[in-house]
Design a protein around this nucleic acid. Structure first.
Length: 271
DNA sequence: GACCAGGTATTGC
DNA sequence: GCAATACATGGT
């Protein structure tokens, strides 16, 4: 068990349920169990104390979870900066002030957001869960790692059929094959300017601007990336007319997350 | 049963 | 170039 005191600006439910990740489930009050980096973690928050439980969590805290939960970033400062930029953005920050951007694995992020296209979040989670159960390593009884791109690269379309991902099956295989062979190279992409990183990822079939942007933001922790989906289009029209992503500056991706969640939880804004 | 879901590729003008 | 349409599946 690892106990970290004095954690502010972090709410587990807001962070896990704001649409950035798909493998965390609530297992008790203020308690979630999930899988990342091929490890199972149980995380609880009581007031300002974060409690992590899991196999070897004492060791993996420093190497993985501290970074995964972005505990070294000052979200109070980021939110203050964003709130001074725009009063509608300030309202979005206040709506769910405990959201943090998770530092997720690039391959899992890419694959998850390929699955997300023209799809809804409950079904996305179901597809990903079946995908992991069928092709991921069972790291603990009934808990499965995300399948490696090498494993997926060697699958056929018919083997992918049971996950019921529909027309996205061919996109998943193309992504896995390009990443596994290195024709799309994450080590290169992570250091590329945003527009180059985007076009590299878009060499994959089924990866357009939106999926590329989500991969860059969540998978590479590039906070200036600004994914625009149907919800963000609505929100931009209603709250930020005639504004470009650059309006939100170096933390545009964080701003996007507050705005996206605020909009999705309040669909009546757009009636 | 239509309509929609954190889009993208393809087609038609 | 840019607007329309198909795409698998399941929830509302």
């Amino acid at each position: 068990m690892v106990i970290i005191e004095n954690i502010d600006d972090f709410d587990l439910s807001e962070t896990f349920n704001c649409g950035q990740c798909f493998r965390w489930n609530q297992t008790a009050d203020n308690t979630f169990t999930g899988i990342a980096y091929s490890r199972v973690l149980n995380v609880t928050k009581e007031k300002n104390t974060l409690i992590l439980r899991g196999t070897n969590v004492e060791k993996s805290f420093e190497s993985i979870w501290k970074s995964y939960f972005d505990l070294d970033s000052d979200y109070k400062k980021i939110k203050l900066h964003l709130s001074r930029l725009d009063e509608n953005l300030a309202a979005a920050c206040q709506y769910a002030p405990g959201i943090r951007i998770l530092r997720q694995e690039p391959w899992e992020t890419l694959c998850s957001f390929i699955i997300s296209q023209n799809n809804n979040i409950p079904r996305i989670k179901g597809i990903i869960e079946r995908f992991c159960q069928l092709f991921g390593e069972e790291i603990e009884p009934r808990f499965f790692a995300f399948p490696t791109c090498e494993t997926v690269a060697n699958l056929s379309l018919s083997e992918l059929e049971p996950i019921k991902c529909g027309f996205r099956d061919k996109y998943i295989l193309d992504a896995a094959r390009k990443v596994a062979t290195g024709s799309v190279n994450f080590e290169v992409i992570k250091n590329l300017p945003l527009d180059k990183a985007r076009s590299e990822l878009m060499k994959i079939k089924g990866v357009g601007p939106k999926v590329a942007e989500c991969t860059i933001l969540y998978g590479f922790y590039r906070l200036e990336a600004f994914p625009v989906d149907v919800w963000m289009k609505r929100a931009m029209g209603a709250f930020f007319p005639n504004k470009e992503p650059s309006y939100f500056g170096e933390f545009a991706g964080v701003a996007q997350q507050y705005i996206f969640h605020y909009s999705r939880m309040n669909p009546s804004f757009f009636e």
